[in-house]
Simulated scan of single mutants.
Amino acid sequence: MLYLLTFGIIFIWTVMLLRKKQLSWHSVITAYVIGVLCSDIFEGLFNLILELYKFPTHLSTNPIYENELGIIFSDFLIFPFTLIIFVHYAAKTKHPWNVILPFAIAFIFLELIFLKLGYLEYRKWSILYSSFFFFAGFRFGAFLAPLITNYVPPIPYRVRLFCFSHTILMWTSAIFAMPLLKMYQFRPGWFQDFMTDCRVGELVTGDILGLLITIFIPVISPKLKPLVFACVTIIGIAIALFSYHRGWLIYHDWNHFLTASRYAASIALIMIYDRWELSYKIEKAQ
């Protein structure tokens, strides 16, 4: 419940900023997808692969699923929404440490509460390591803040496009694979822990598609973009079917049609995002 409570407070704070029209939807989405990518990188390395700490969220009877639920809350909800709030305040000040210090100290204090109440378990970790990453992370966020909120100049489009692609593809994986709906799982055999194997397998296959989109979409004419997006969709489906026949993709309540639909829907959302950002760029230039 502590994870739900923390996210609830942060979400209400974000909604209040949006209702007051303090942030544009372009800024919100940019901050969110950058937050997801950065969180995914560090969480995947330190939590899943190196197992330096774990999240006993008390939301499942299976400790492996508990940890993955904690990752979903931290990577996809708490930290990205916090970044949305943070960049709003950091972009308004000429002295970023006035914003960095209270946010970093608040998260250090929050982590100590999680640790004390048993919602966070250190294995080969320390509050000092977390403190370093909080200060470094918010300092990096302060650097990005004016680029995210004002788009003058904007963060390079390839970076935004890759972050958005990563977020969409990983969200569909988090929902339909484990630990939520458990409809399928990747098992490439890279790791003994089945959850780490699944998440890293999804991350690699998803980011291959994200890289292809990032490489080709920004440099081709708008008329050819639907064809390129369709080709990337076919590549994603082909990777999944190949993985299935090699035994690396296991269906539970899943099938080939749902696999194709999953990639088609994800790529369609990325295509809509690309058109949305292009129209915004044209509007800003006028």
Score class of each variant (00 low, 15 high):
Y3R: 05
L5Q: 00
T6S: 05
G8R: 00
I10T: 06
F11V: 00
W13P: 03
M16S: 08
M16F: 02
L17V: 03
Q22E: 10
S24M: 10
S24F: 08
W25N: 11
V28Q: 01
Y32F: 06
V33N: 05
V33D: 00
G35Y: 02
L37R: 08
C38N: 03
D40L: 08
I41G: 00
I41E: 04
I41Q: 01
E43R: 02
F46S: 04
I49T: 05
E51A: 10
L52Q: 13
K54Y: 01
L59E: 08
S60Y: 00
N62F: 01
E66W: 02
E66D: 09
E66T: 02
E66A: 05
N67A: 00
G70I: 13
I72D: 04
F73E: 11
L77Q: 11
F81W: 08
T82I: 15
T82N: 13
T82D: 11
L83E: 07
F86I: 15
F86L: 11
Y89A: 10
Y89G: 10
P96C: 05
N98P: 00
N98G: 04
I100W: 00
L101T: 10
F103Q: 01
A104L: 02
A104D: 06
A106H: 04
A106Y: 05
I108P: 09
L110T: 13
L110D: 04
F114C: 03
L115G: 09
K116A: 10
Y119Q: 08
Y122S: 03
R123K: 13
W125L: 06
F133G: 14
F134E: 11
F135T: 13
R139G: 14
F140L: 15
A145L: 08
T149S: 00
T149Q: 11
Y151S: 14
P153F: 13
Y157P: 12
R158L: 08
R158A: 07
V159Q: 12
V159S: 04
R160S: 04
L161V: 13
C163W: 09
F164E: 03
M170E: 07
M170G: 07
W171M: 08
A177Q: 05
L180R: 06
Y184M: 01
Q185H: 00
M195T: 06
T196K: 11
C198G: 02
E202V: 02
V204E: 07
T205K: 09
D207C: 15
I208H: 14
G210F: 04
L212C: 04
T214Y: 07
I215V: 13
I217T: 12
P226D: 15
P226R: 14
F229K: 14
A230N: 09
C231G: 14
C231N: 07
T233Y: 05
I234A: 15
I234G: 12
G236K: 04
A238V: 09
A240N: 13
A240V: 11
L241T: 13
S243A: 15
G247L: 12
W248E: 14
I250E: 04
N255Y: 10
H256W: 14
F257V: 12
L258I: 11
A260M: 12
A260K: 14
S261G: 08
A264E: 01
L269Q: 01
I270N: 06
M271L: 11
M271Q: 10
M271N: 02
D274G: 09
R275C: 07
E277S: 06
E277M: 13
L278Q: 09
K281Q: 10
E283Q: 15
